[in-house]
């Protein structure tokens, strides 16, 4: 009996050592890029995963500083570039350059990064709850357009025409999420992580019980409810654009923050678009693009772009789910 107990002791001490190999979790939330960002990480070592989370937030701050249109942070950031309009080539930071390059390589005109002037018009009117006149919109729109800036790939410079102003709101967060995710993935102690940056989410690794991640998509007309739950694979990213995220109403008409570059008015072809892709930047880009495009065109873009799948809700509340998601999306209505 004594020997039985001693073998039990050996086995149980082996088991207790196993406790130290149990999964640890850590979560932190901070306010960055005008959004509440929550990063949850699980891994083998408590100190290491906290470290990974902190580094991820540092990565976010890095991108925020370089793409913030409203404040000066670094000598080669977006604020400085915009200030340099009409003054020839300007050397920009790496993140900023990569973002503008990605944008220039896309053929779509419905997403435009040069809408600074018209965005400012709507922002000013939003503060007083008024609607800008067509004249105002036309004048501001004249300062916008894909032709208003150019990239020089040899010298890493950007040239803005006079009066133009870039706003990277449509894609900066997606880019930041990818960057933060790459920082976390470098840390070998991390088994899995979820980065939730408001309308941009990326999942890393497998969930502890081996099942896929389940992400709920907010109901555009009812903040307490969700449209349904999407099952996500490791490494996938999801981005949502909606007319309910930032808007103001005048006389019962909603004016949201996503503008149609062709008209300078808030886009009204959809009330919510959600895109799934392996890159958060791609998801962010297309969620904005599909929001602006007319419904049928948006569906056609999804069909012709193999890297993305999407869920689009039109103003009537009808939900389109692209074929690749029908197996993994469960409606809640």
């Amino acid at each position: 009996m004594k020997k039985l107990l001693s073998s039990l002791l050996i086995i149980s001490s082996l088991l207790t050592t196993g406790c130290f190999f149990k999964q640890q979790s850590y979560q932190d939330t901070r306010f960055l890029m005008d959004t509440i960002i929550t990063i949850s990480v699980t891994g083998k070592d408590q100190a290491a995963i906290k470290n990974a989370t902190d580094e991820a937030f540092i990565a976010f701050k890095e991108v925020e500083d370089e793409t913030d249109r409203y404040k000066s942070h670094k000598p080669r950031d977006l604020y400085a570039l915009n200030q340099h309009n009409g003054q020839g080539p300007f050397i920009v930071g790496d993140h900023l350059y990569k973002l503008l390059l990605m944008y220039k390589e896309q053929p779509y005109t419905a997403l435009d990064l040069s809408l600074g002037p018209i965005i400012d018009v709507w922002r000013t009117h939003g503060e007083t709850k008024t609607v800008p006149s067509l004249e105002e919109i036309k004048t501001a729109l004249a300062k916008c357009g894909r032709d208003k800036f150019s990239l020089d790939t040899t010298n890493h410079t950007v040239t803005l025409t006079a009066g133009s102003n870039l706003d990277l709101g449509a894609i900066a967060k997606g880019y930041a999420v990818d960057y933060a995710a790459s920082v976390i993935t470098k840390n070998k102690a991390v088994t899995s992580a979820l980065i939730n940056a408001g309308g941009n989410i990326k999942v890393i690794g497998t969930k502890a019980n081996g099942k896929p991640w389940r992400i709920g998509i907010q109901d555009p007309r009812n903040p307490q409810e969700i449209l349904g739950i999407l099952e996500m694979k490791n490494g996938q990213a999801i981005a949502t654009s909606g007319d309910y995220q930032r808007y103001y109403e005048v006389n019962g008409v909603r004016y949201c923050h996503i503008l149609d570059p062709a008209t300078g008015q808030p886009a009204r072809n959809a009330i919510s678009t959600t895109v799934v892709s392996s890159s958060a930047l791609t998801a962010d880009f297309f969620s904005t693009l599909l929001f602006v495009l007319p419904h049928e065109e948006a569906i056609s873009v999804v069909k012709n772009t193999p890297q993305i799948e999407a869920i689009i809700v039109n103003p009537k509340g009808e939900i389109y789910v692209s074929p690749g998601l029908r197996n993994t999306f469960t409606k809640e209505k």
Binding site: I11, S12, L15
Partner: peptide, 16 residues
């Protein structure tokens, strides 16, 4: 000390 090892260990211990 991988999860697989520990699960097998738990089974073997109790069974023994």
């Amino acid at each position: 000390f991988t999860p697989g090892f520990l699960i097998g260990l738990g089974g073997a211990a109790l069974s023994f």
